[in-house]
């Protein structure tokens, strides 16, 4: 099964007041986990999103799509990045726990649906 492990904007926002040592520690943790997942062959995909202040939300207003500056959810709850790994659920939760222990901000683990491979043209 594939799982998406999601991190949210609140983790990034809390960085403002952290010490340089804490920030370095978090970078090391993330780089280490990323390398570990890549080396083990568990990693399917991993992306970090740019700050939600750069987001635009397109909403359906007065019968048409309208673009407005800002993220859809509150910055705290806005998606900041994700790993998709192929593993047991237990393992996905373990990876998330390693991060949460350090950043003290929640992460979400969710199974990814199976779908047929895209048709090749």
């Amino acid at each position: 099964m594939k799982y998406m492990i999601m991190m949210f904007g609140g983790a990034g926002a809390s960085m403002r007041d952290r010490s340089p040592e804490w920030i370095s520690g978090m970078h090391a943790l993330m780089v280490g986990l990323d390398a570990e997942l890549r080396e083990s062959g568990e990693l399917v995909d991993s992306r970090k999103l740019m700050d939600p202040s750069g987001a635009t939300t397109v909403r359906f207003v007065d019968s048409k799509a309208v673009a407005t500056d800002g993220p859809f959810a509150e910055v705290k709850e806005s998606l900041a990045g994700y790993w998709i790994i192929e593993s047991s659920e237990e393992r996905a939760l373990e990876v998330a726990a390693k991060c949460v222990d350090y950043i003290e901000f929640p992460m979400e683990v969710r199974p990814v649906m199976d779908e047929p491979p895209p048709a090749t043209t």
């Binding site: 403002r16 007041d17 952290r18 010490s19 340089p20 804490w22 920030i23 370095s24 700050d51 750069g54």
Partner: peptide, 26 residues
Amino acid sequence: YLRAAKATASLPEQRYLQLRASRLAH
């Protein structure tokens, strides 16, 4: 530094800028 960190698309650069800001604060 923090504003630049939010606007960069490069992860190493973002980390560098965050660290720089944090050093100043402390």
